[in-house]
Amino acid sequence: MISDKDVKYIAGLARIHLEDDQVTHLTKDLEGILHYIEKLNKLDVTQVDPTSHVLPLKNVYREDEVKPSLSQEEVLKFSVEQRDGSFKVPKVIE
């Protein structure tokens, strides 16, 4: 149902590095859980609307006003690396 190859692909989408033994282990775990989830296939839901949220939510608008917010210094304080008032990250483009 789910293969090591699928797990490696999903790990890439989720931006998680996995060692080979972790891939094997996760494949087994996910296979068990997906097998359990298959019980939903007993239900015919073609005529049912999906519920992504229980409240009858509408867009909540507000005036576009400038209000006090965190300073640049406060925001940068928790980053591991920073330079010239910006977050520093490894090279993005080869």
Binding site: H17, L26, L34
Partner: peptide, 21 residues
């Protein structure tokens, strides 16, 4: 990938993987 691999525990990885799938 490395930060998330080291930072997240086993159950967190399992759930992120299941959700991403």
């Amino acid at each position: 990938e490395e930060s998330r691999s080291v930072g997240f525990g086993e159950e967190a990885k399992r759930r992120i993987m299941l959700g991403t799938y």
